[in-house]
Design a protein around this nucleic acid. Structure first.
Lengths: 231, 231, 231, 231
DNA sequence: GATGAATGAGACTTCATTCAT
DNA sequence: TATGAATGAAGTCTCATTCAT
């Protein structure tokens, strides 16, 4: 074997461990950061704690992320931004009707984002926007606008297919967005805004919301005159 | 007496003003703190700024509140008041149909709560609940449950009058609650997480949401047999 | 006496001490800062050390100066900037001829700046310009330009009085400036650029330089043709 | 042999290149360090930047220099070389008059030293002498004294030829030295402490200074009896 | 009670130096 | 020898809290 090469002797086992670690570092740090940001908020999370949880020193974190802000941005990119292209594609190739599409989207949002730690990021942004305007700008660009665009496309698609009313595209978005944001806040708000009497089941919640969004609570089959607005 | 002391000479006159203010101090501090906590969040609010806005020195604040944390708790406790009896009364005597009632309630909620400082408490609770779990129970009891009860009564009333579908009473609540909570968050800086393209107008937002809640986005005049999905 | 007034009892002695200190703080801090900046340079001076030398804590320093940079600027203003109006006035009212004026100015610059710690600031700026561009801009505006203007006025005055040659006003300045800067550097450069064989005596140095500046080293009473330039 | 080891296979070829470079390493590092120390000062120069510019890793630098401080000392020592013998020779064989000699010397100093990297050492010494007193003696011996001697010989030569006044030999030196040192500082960033209004042209500067040094700024053709001042 | 000067723990970030590979 | 990932001391600055007045 290569026992005649003193370098090679060490190479196989140990070097790999080091290099592995190097490549694993960013991921470990991002995971730790996600945990802590969600758990304690952006301002209250100390970078040293992130580093500790990832098993490295404070300095090492700054080897991979230039600042706390960049660390946060990387967390957002890693956990949220990436999803939108995938989602956009699904939307483009979806074949069902609007009801099915809406049901699918909201369920799938819950599974892929809402139910995961990633949803804590949105909660955090809503809580701590105000400070950190740069992060807001980033989050807007990276998450909010793509998300809103997606919802808008769903609504437009429904209108074009003759399945949905032609509501004001701006305010219509909120009919879909608000329930999701609410669920998100409820989950991370310590339930303080959900009712303690009930353990909110996300799937049932979403089913109920989709039903309302699509068909309303009213029994009347037609929209009354008083509601006949152009938008 | 102390006529030889030029400082004391003024003391009597000044003291009166001071004592009057003295009793007002805690209230002024709480008001200032509410403003700032809502605006900037707990961590980003500096006690000095609170004191300044209340017109006292930083040291004085600590005479009334043992710590920043106690100040926060006092702010929440102070501002959570069950003004629900009034609303309960209105609901009992309301004479219109469910559409009118819902429209009235949401508009009036906006005017009486959403647009006022009081809505800041909800924002605060949703943002900081994780860090102040002791307050959550309090908030639940005083605000969330009475609020949910009210919404539930509205829905039941509609069902009884044959105007609303008989949705699950637990999850139906959220169809009304979610849009209001969303608007609340939006107003308090979570708005920066709304889409920058649009300046959300509360009245239009509410009108749009009521329309959806009542009649849905779907054009189909009838609700399909639930569960009948193709996939 | 005013023994009947409990407030007054303390007022005279103790309060004054505190208030005295408060007013004295900035001065004490500026003095400490000047010492350390001159001794160790801008970058190498730690604000905590400045605070310690002034007998206060780190935090206290920031009560009076918003940043290390502002502290430095205050040191410059305190020790250098102020002198220029005084000097400008002296120049305006000076009655002697150019030789006397130049001799007076350089001697007086030495006494008021060069021989004091303030001169260390200029040494520091020359050493650490490059980094800290904001400080350079400040120093330019606050010190260099007023200084150069002063020298230029001296030369112009001499030309108008028929006492000095009409040299290029830009480069002429350096004939006066260079010797002073050199002396400044020599003094703070650890003498590494002066000759160890000789202890440079500032007064003699200045006398010698003035002589050269005015009359040159050449014995020829007139400027030779080769030197006849328009500037 | 180690043909079974793919890494070793390359080793022989690479090693040759490496060993060749190995001997050049210290020099490359010193050159890079000189550049950066001159440009940014000691404190502001990061060893990593030095290593990068020399094309090696940070760790390698520490193989050759025990610390940043040692690196600095090596830079100074390496670059201080008594090239004064050459100049001494020129001076001995120069045939022109003192004006020509002075003009020649200062121009030639600029070309051979001032305009080159070597001048950075002087800047370095003047800036950092305080922090590296051990280097001062070295610099004195190798640079300052030989330089001063040279200037002194020029002046003596002029006096002997009846071309220059018999000024104090100690202080006369500075009339020649100060302008050069000033230019040196100006060139290396101390220039930012020159007046922003003017882009100092070295050739014009030197011409102007030589003129002043030789003939003074005064129009009076004769030197007044020294000491005769009105005040 | 009221003040506000003073404190000092602690946050983010930098960088000379070390050491396993 | 050479690397570069990792370290941790040190630096600037913030701010809740204290305490002499």
């Amino acid at each position: 074997m290569s026992t005649s090469c003193p370098i090679c002797k060490l190479a196989s086992g140990v070097r790999i461990k080091r290099e592995r670690r190097k490549e694993a570092r960013p991921g470990e740090l991002l995971a730790a950061a996600l945990d802590l940001f969600v758990e304690k908020g952006y301002a209250a999370t100390r970078v040293e704690e992130v580093a500790q949880r990832a098993g490295v020193s404070k300095g090492t974190l700054f080897l991979y992320f230039a600042s706390k802000e960049e660390l946060f941005k990387a967390v957002v990119r890693e956990n949220i931004s990436g999803r939108f292209t995938e989602w956009g594609e699904e939307l483009r190739t979806f074949e069902g009707n609007s009801e099915e599409l809406l049901r699918y989207c909201m369920s799938s949002w819950w599974e892929r984002v809402g139910a995961t730690k990633a949803s804590g990021i949105t909660k955090l942004m809503m809580s701590e926007a105000g400070n950190f305007p740069e992060l807001v700008r980033f989050f807007q660009q990276e998450v909010v606008q793509p998300g809103n665009d997606l919802i808008q496309r769903i609504l437009q698609r429904g209108v074009e297919r003759g399945e949905l009313r032609n509501v004001d595209p701006t305010y219509g978005i909120y009919s879909v967005l608000a329930p999701m944001i609410f669920l998100n806040m409820w989950k991370h708000g310590g339930g303080s805004c959900g009712d303690a009497r009930t353990e909110l089941d996300p799937q049932q919640y979403i089913a109920s919301q989709v039903q309302t969004i699509l068909f309303g609570l009213s029994v009347s089959p037609t929209i009354p005159v008083s509601g006949k607005k152009k938008n």
